[in-house]
Design a protein around this nucleic acid. Structure first.
Lengths: 242, 242
DNA sequence: GCAGTTCATATAGCGTTGCTATAGGTGCTA
DNA sequence: TAGCACCTATAGCAACGCTATATGAACTGC
């Protein structure tokens, strides 16, 4: 199962490490696995990459190029905030598509040691926020906005990765994304008081009622009634959120 | 350097693990270190805790108690959203005070394996959001709000931990916190005379929901369902919930 | 008081990990 | 051909998580 062919050992090591990482399923990947799959022996790895972390950094660098490509490849829409929204989604998508690589990049956290890649990602996002700031759409400095959004973006992505696939709910991402972007922006489209105010008041009321019922051990309703009742409330409160 | 004294080996192991973890400075802690410092041998560890992760889980459980104590120990201000704000700050403070322990609790992420502790923390926060929902201060379901806020809270805390101490800027936390809380809240609750919040809100919410349902041609429910539903709402809203 | 049982700890060692001291091969320039 | 970098392999070290096995201690039933 080794990677034969004409590639030089260094490239074979990179490729083997990336493949094993992608298929590891969360368990650790050993240097012996990597060198065996690459068809080389241990000293070759350490000659080219110094140590295991060096190899992983190199893999991450390649992964980051892919990440950056995803972050840049859409045409600027002229609306920086819309671009940032897409940046967020690209970030989450990248994390869910390659969770192991993402975890090496963003999940390998140790106190007071900030991976260079985080700074790079932050710079990428700050660059985008600068455009928003130029057009007066920001109410906080771009740097702060980028740091804040990236932190939330990483937090959401990590939480989604930790969840089992069938339970992953991208609403979490969309909601957090919009909340954060709105918070740093100057747009005031919050309360239009227009048509959907009726709808949203249903939602608010249903949510409040639902919570109140769960809080008080309501003996107004039998348990089976209550169950159905709550199910309806849930249907209402989740169906009409737009 | 071993922990002598009268404590049973199990407690000594827990204590040694917690101490070593707190002083590890980010590097890994081995079972040999732990057993040596505890003054026992390896099989004792595995007899009591199964494996290394079991021991760490036990340490985390103790750490979580401390975390929960921090999250609960302030008196409810009567303003749930204000309490949530303090919850957020407690979370960050806990993470910065004991980064290694925090990383074991919230930073040990693997795909599709969600640590039980995350679910616990989420439940704790959801509980608080339920109170906010009761007083009609939420515009999203409490569960979604809790997940979203917790994700952002963890993301911010991890990012702060990764930064070198002198560069840590708590503005990042405050800003993200307020952004998230604002986003899930119904900002209208500001000028409420807070009198009619609480238990009677069941009635208020039920009435509001009732009116809203009748106003909109709700096609979420069938007509017979709606009839029964409204009957229940009537029962609830005309009786006093304890 | 004594055998039987269970719990708790120790001795010794297995297999794997990341990594390296040393040496040998390969291809280039002179 | 000689010399010199560069690259790779053999073999093995120390540390890791973990365990098969055995021994001691404490309690139970008769």
């Amino acid at each position: 199962m080794s990677i034969d062919g004409q590639l030089p050992p260094k490239a074979r090591l990179l490729r083997a490490a990336a493949e094993l990482l992608a298929n590891s399923g969360g368990s650790a990947v050993s240097t012996r696995q990597i060198t065996q799959q690459a068809g080389v022996t241990a000293p070759t790895l350490y000659h080219h990459f110094g140590d295991k972390e060096g190899l992983f950094d190199a893999v991450v660098a390649a992964g980051f190029d892919e990440y950056v490509a995803g972050e840049r490849d859409f045409a600027p829409s002229g609306q920086p905030l819309e671009d940032i929204r897409r940046m967020w989604d690209n970030h989450v998508e990248f994390g869910l598509k390659q969770p192991e690589l993402y975890l090496v990049m963003f999940g390998n956290i140790r106190p007071e040691s900030r991976p260079a890649i985080v700074a790079d990602a932050e710079a990428l996002m700050e660059e985008m926020f600068n455009k928003a700031a130029v057009s007066g759409q920001l109410n906080v400095p771009p740097k702060e906005a980028a740091r804040s959004i990236l932190a939330a973006n990483v937090g959401v992505t990590l939480m989604l990765i930790a969840e089992k696939v069938p339970e992953r709910n991208l609403e979490l991402s969309a909601m957090t994304r919009d909340a954060m972007i709105f918070a740093v922006s100057t747009e005031q489209a919050r309360d239009n008081g227009s048509d959907d105010s009726g709808k949203s008041s249903v939602v608010v009321a249903a949510i409040a009622l639902n919570a109140a019922l769960q809080a008080s051990h309501s003996d107004q309703l039998s348990s089976s009634e209550l169950k159905l009742f709550l199910e309806w409330l849930h249907r209402i409160s989740t169906s009409s959120t737009s």
